[in-house]
Computed example of a mutant assay.
Amino acid sequence: MTTHIDRKLAELGLTLPAAAAPVASYVPTVESGGMLYVSGQIPFDADGALILGRLGEDGCDIAFGQEAARRCALMIVAQVKAALGGFDRVGRIVKLGVFVNSTPDFTDQPQVANGASDLMEALFGDAGKHARAAVSAPSLPRGVAVEVDAVIAIA
């Protein structure tokens, strides 16, 4: 069955990836108290390769970071679908935490984070509008450019 989210993904030219398995001692999602907590997701490109880099060096600019953040958000959506069996129970994207692998002088973390935020709003409409933190990190797991976690209200 094709859902509204599936149609929006197709309109955006995106394919929902398979939900990534954890790489350490944690679970990808936890459902508790009407909320779904999604562990930090890292970015994979359309071919399944990690998006690596440090914003502010080696040509890693805002647009590069936004695409990495968008890919993290896409993986969050995949984790939601895997955890809930679809999107019918999604009430609202409550909060995103966006971690940007960046140099000390890079200060455009909010613009990078927009890659994830804009995708959530494009897919979920007003229910995709959320609170957010966008912070710098001196390094991230496996050398990825961005990592994003989420809190989602569910029915």
Rank of each mutant, 00 (worst) to 15 (best):
S25V: 03
P22A: 08
G85W: 02
I62N: 14
Q66M: 15
N114V: 01
P110E: 00
A155I: 09
I76Y: 01
V135T: 11
A63L: 10
Y26T: 11
Q79A: 15
A134S: 14
K129F: 04
T3P: 07
I93P: 00
V77S: 08
G91I: 01
S139Y: 13
L84A: 14
K81P: 03
A10F: 01
D58E: 13
F124H: 03
Y37F: 15
A155E: 15
G59L: 11
A82I: 11
T2F: 00
Q111P: 00
T15Q: 11
G115H: 15
D118W: 07
D6P: 06
F87Q: 11
T103S: 06
M1Q: 04
F124Q: 01
L140P: 09
K81S: 12
Q66F: 04
A127Y: 12
T15S: 12
L84Y: 11
L16F: 06
G33T: 11
D105C: 08
A78S: 12
F87W: 13
A24G: 07
I62R: 14
H130I: 01
Y26W: 13
G33F: 10
I42A: 11
G59T: 11
A122I: 05
G86S: 10
Y37T: 12
G91L: 05
A122M: 10
V27S: 05
A150G: 05
A46P: 01
V98K: 04
A19Y: 06
L55E: 04
G143N: 06
S25K: 12
P138C: 03
R54Q: 15
P28E: 08
E11K: 01
V38S: 08
A83V: 10
E57H: 01
A18N: 09
